[in-house]
C-alpha cells in the first residue's frame, strides 16, 4: 500500500505546486512509483510545471463520471517511467468533486503506486477539504513571511482536527542574506512559531522560474542548483533517510556579517 501525502499551505503562491512537481520527480528518481494528483480543479497547474500539459486527455472528473478508466486518465511521464499525473478538470470548479470521491481515487492509486502526492489548492474551502480527505500525511509549505506563516498555522490546526497525524514543515524561499541582516525570519524562527517538525528548507532561487518556463522540474537536471538539492534531500527524508540540512548561510557568513553580529550583541 502506498503512502498518501498532501502538499498544502493555506496561502497561495508559496510554492505548493513547485514542491509537488519536484518531490514527485525526486521520489520517482529514487526508484519509487509515484502518482501525482492535481486537486486544484478549475485552476490546474501541475501539468504545466511537469511539462505534461499537451498530453492531458482525460481528467479525474471523467474517471469519476465513469467516462474512462482511471488508468486511461493517468498521464505517464516519458522522462521517468514510474511517474504519473492524474490531472484536474480545468473547466469546472472545486465543487465538482466530493471528499468521498477523492478518497476513492487516492485509495485506488495506492494499490499500484508507492507514493500518492496530492497537490492541494490554496484556501481552506471545498478544494482543501477534498485534497486532505484521503491523506495520512501532510507537507506544509510556507515562506518566511507573516501572512504565509499565519495561514500555515491555520492549516495545521485544520489538519489536526481531521486526524492527519504526520505533519511536516517545508520553509520555502529563504533569502539567507536577508536573514543575516535580521530582515527576514530564519527557518528556525518559523519552525519554532509553527511548532511542527521541519523536513526541509529551500532557498529562494531564480532557477525555479527557468525550470517552470521549460516544464522541467529542477530535480530533473543533472547538475542542479542548491534549491534542487534541497528538494532532492526532502524526497530522501520522506523515504525515511536521515539527511543533514543544507547550510544555506555558508556563502553569506563573511567577515563583515560576523563583525556586524558581534556588534549587535
Amino acid at each position: 500500500m502506498g503512502r498518501i501525502i498532501v502538499i498544502t499551505s493555506g496561502k497561495g503562491g508559496v510554492g505548493k505546486t513547485t514542491c509537488s512537481a519536484n518531490l514527485g520527480m525526486a521520489l520517482a528518481k529514487l526508484n519509487h512509483s509515484v502518482a501525482l494528483i492535481d486537486a486544484d480543479f478549475g485552476l490546474r497547474n501541475l501539468d504545466l510545471l511537469l511539462g505534461l500539459e499537451n498530453r492531458v486527455v482525460y481528467t479525474a472528473l471523467e474517471v469519476l463520471a465513469g467516462q474512462c478508466r482511471l488508468e486511461q486518465a493517468l498521464v505517464k511521464d516519458k522522462r521517468l517511467h514510474d511517474l504519473v499525473l492524474l490531472p484536474a478538470a480545468q473547466n469546472r470548479n472545486k465543487d465538482a468533486v466530493t471528499p468521498e470521491q477523492m478518497k476513492q481515487l487516492a485509495y485506488a492509486l495506492t494499490k499500484k503506486y508507492d507514493f500518492v502526492l496530492i497537490d492541494c489548492p490554496a484556501g481552506i474551502e471545498m478544494g482543501f477539504q477534498n485534497a486532505i480527505a484521503a491523506a495520512d500525511e501532510a507537507l506544509i509549505v510556507t515562506t518566511p513571511e507573516i501572512s504565509a506563516v499565519r495561514d500555515a498555522d491555520r492549516v495545521v490546526g485544520l489538519l489536526e482536527a481531521h486526524h492527519v497525524k504526520t505533519i511536516n514543515l517545508i520553509v520555502n524561499r529563504i533569502r539567507p542574506a536577508m536573514v543575516q541582516a535580521n530582515d527576514m525570519m530564519s527557518v528556525q524562527d518559523v519552525q519554532e512559531i509553527l511548532a511542527i517538525p521541519l523536513i526541509g528548507m529551500i532557498p529562494d532561487d531564480e532557477q525555479v522560474i527557468v525550470a517552470t518556463n521549460r516544464g522541467e522540474p529542477l530535480v530533473l537536471s543533472e547538475n542542479f542548483s542548491l534549491s534542487g538539492m534541497a528538494l532532492q534531500n526532502i524526497a530522501q527524508r520522506i523515504e525515511g533517510k536521515d539527511i543533514d540540512f543544507l547550510d544555506l548561510d555558508a556563502p553569506y557568513d563573511t567577515l563583515f556579517s560576523r563583525l556586524r553580529r558581534f556588534f549587535k550583541r
Binding site: 507573516i146 506563516v149 499565519r150 498555522d153 491555520r154 490546526g157 536573514v179 535580521n182 530582515d183 527576514m184 525570519m185 530564519s186 524562527d189 512559531i193
Partner: peptide, 19 residues
C-alpha cells in the same frame, strides 16, 4: 528592533488569537 523581531512578535500575538 529589527524587522525580524517585529514580525516574530506580531506573529506570536496574531497566532495566539487565531488559535
Amino acid at each position: 528592533t529589527t524587522s525580524r523581531d517585529d514580525v516574530k512578535s506580531r506573529l506570536k500575538i496574531v497566532l495566539a488569537h487565531d488559535r
